[in-house]
Design a protein around this nucleic acid. Structure first.
Lengths: 244, 244
DNA sequence: CGGGAGATTGAGCGCCTTCAATATTTGTGG
DNA sequence: CCACAAATATTGAAGGCGCTCAATCTCCCG
């Protein structure tokens, strides 16, 4: 690897980021150049702490791998707040908000890039299209958070799992990571349980039921939605609109 | 009432808004003047729809009374996403986000004021302190949303209720609506149930337990926390920092 | 060939739900 | 000020969804 990020190999790393933000706004050449010029990637193993609970935010974008924001309760209960997928920003916003009180951990091996330059551009007022894209991305995050409240508050275990599957597939589509109904699936049943407020055992039984029912298939780290229409129906999933 | 909003009576209506935003940033005289110059209040009865699910956002501030954002499921299940208290903004942000897919209803009789002027000022770049305050207010909203996920995902019925009590009291303190441990309480047990993902019957039993246990007292629409330390402990409530 | 993380299975139970009925409070009109 | 209706709160009983505990199985990795 050279010290310059201008070669094709380095650019390819940023594809997920560019595709995701491009879904929200028409980025200019300068916007894309800014993203390509981000510092070379940092790599993290699975289970690394990207961000401590009370730490000052460090803006990053996730180039590859999955991560999660979560909060712990005193007795060890864990609640995953959101999953972070390739192309997603971490702390990329116009105002640092140290008050969210959530930690971030990698779920798989991960590559990230420092996104301070993006935040600086937001404050400088250059790159208006990128700013709009970032704001839309934040609005989508809020939408997912609201979905999460509804899921954990008023849906059954079966519905929660279906809804989470639909959300993750939709977000992977957005960043161009997948195309059809098959998606990489690095999540353990414990992670799913911690996101959906369920026990590991119950998640296991529900997934088994879905598999035996021919709704999904999971093997070799790939999960396939065999009956996406049924799953979306069960989950009452509504894909967010992109035109905003 | 005259057509001008410059008299003391009209100004007093905006006190909650000014106090709340002042908690986030040092507003300039011009910022406060902008708030005082907002159009005269609209009044709504209890149960009015302030905002439909898919409607374009209409920026408002809540001057008095309580409201709630919620989402309905097909079969009638309702999830309250957040409570809106005096001084809170509704759709006051730098980017309209029609994708949240939540409706807003009044819970009591309510007075609101159109806040388009605030949003316009945000976009114009005048009033930087007010802009910072709005951003901090949004960050606090996100914090509360995250708390809500944790509550509904990983806490027991008792813990959820305690946490909600603490959050609402803390937010009422913030806008100067109350001072001690007594607060106005317009919420029915059904509203609490719809916020916390519980059944009405169970909320009733939990509240009764808390009353008989001397933790709270409720009468004449006023709820008092008799053992705030215990309640905060049970809820594992952490008050958000204000210095940000 | 261990060792460990994750997945699976069974048994028992409890938190919370649903259903249903009654009491109480609130609001409204006479 | 009372009467009536509607909304809200309360209580009891029965049951189910999802939990805990505990053991076993599978798979991956060095």
């Amino acid at each position: 690897m050279g010290s310059s990020s201008a070669n094709a190999g380095a650019r390819a790393q940023y594809e997920a980021v560019v595709r995701r933000y491009s879904a929200f706004a028409s980025l200019s050449a300068a916007d894309i150049e800014l993203l390509h010029a981000l510092p070379l990637a940092e790599t993290w193993p699975a289970g690394a702490e990207l961000h401590a609970e009370a730490a000052p935010p460090q803006p990053r974008v996730l180039l590859s791998g999955w991560a999660a924001r979560f909060r712990m309760l005193r007795d060890g209960r864990r609640q995953i707040i959101s999953f972070i997928l390739p192309g997603d920003g971490i702390g990329v916003c116009e105002r640092p908000s140290p008050l969210t009180l959530t930690a971030t951990t990698t779920l798989t091996a991960v590559r990230t890039a420092d996104a301070s330059a993006v935040v600086a551009a937001l404050h400088a007022g250059t790159h208006p299209a990128l700013r709009d894209a970032v704001r839309s991305a934040i609005a989508l995050d809020e939408r997912c958070l609201i979905d999460h409240v509804v899921r954990n508050g008023r849906q059954t275990a079966q519905e929660r799992i279906c809804h989470l599957l639909m959300e993750l597939r939709w977000r992977l589509l957005l960043s161009g990571a997948i195309e059809g109904y098959a998606m990489p699936w690095p999540l353990t049943q414990e992670m799913i349980a911690d996101a959906l407020g369920l026990s590991i055992v119950h998640v296991n039984r529900m997934l088994q039921h879905m598999r035996r029912d021919g709704q999904i298939e999971a093997r070799h780290g790939v999960l396939t939605l065999l009956q996406p229409g049924l799953i979306a129906e069960l989950a009452e999933f509504r894909a967010p609109p992109l035109t905003s």
